[in-house]
Computed example of a mutant assay.
Amino acid sequence: MATDYDAPRKTDEDTESLQALQERVPDKLSGVVDADDADNPGFDLGGSDLSDLDLDVVVLPPQEDEFTCVNCFLVKHQSQFDHDTKHGPMCRECSA
């Protein structure tokens, strides 16, 4: 049987009044902050002051079997090489 996806699909559950819907949905402009908001996770550092901490990072130069893609600027393994352009090598993901 063919289905008309453009036809309106109303059921008895869809006939709620606007007022009933507004009572059920929380007011987003109320200014109340939810502490357990999953979209905005907080970072608890345990009250530690990390301002005097120095971070040392070792940066390795590109290896012989690696190249930097001219499109995405990521260092890729030679197995991801697709072709050379006039600007430099391009990876398979960027060529697709």
Results as ranks from 00 to 15, higher is better:
Pro26Cys: 00
Asn40Gly: 03
Val25His: 10
Phe73Gly: 07
Leu60Ser: 11
Asp37Phe: 00
Asp49Val: 00
Gly47Met: 03
Ser30Tyr: 03
Leu29His: 15
Leu18Ser: 08
Asn71Gln: 14
Val75Ile: 13
Glu64Met: 11
Val33Tyr: 06
Ser30Gly: 13
Gln19His: 07
Pro62Glu: 09
Phe73Arg: 14
Asp56Thr: 15
Asp34Pro: 00
Asp39Cys: 09
Asn40Tyr: 08
Val75Asn: 08
Ser79Met: 05
Leu18Asp: 09
Leu18Glu: 07
Gln80Glu: 15
Ser48Tyr: 09
Val75Asp: 04
Leu29Met: 10
Gln80His: 12
Pro62Cys: 09
Glu16Gln: 15
Gln78Leu: 15
Asn71Trp: 05
Asp82His: 15
Ser30Arg: 07
Gln78Cys: 12
Ala20Asn: 06
Val57Tyr: 11
Glu13Cys: 07
Asp49Phe: 04
Arg24Ala: 12
Asp44Leu: 04
Cys72Tyr: 02
Cys72Ser: 02
Val59Trp: 10
Asp52Glu: 15
Asp39Val: 04
Leu21Thr: 06
Val59Arg: 12
Gly47Glu: 01
Asp14Val: 00
Asp34Thr: 03
Glu16Asn: 10
Ala38Asp: 10
Glu66Ser: 01
Asp49His: 01
Cys69Gln: 00
Asp49Glu: 04
Pro41Lys: 00
Ser79Asn: 10
Asp49Tyr: 03
Val25Ala: 10
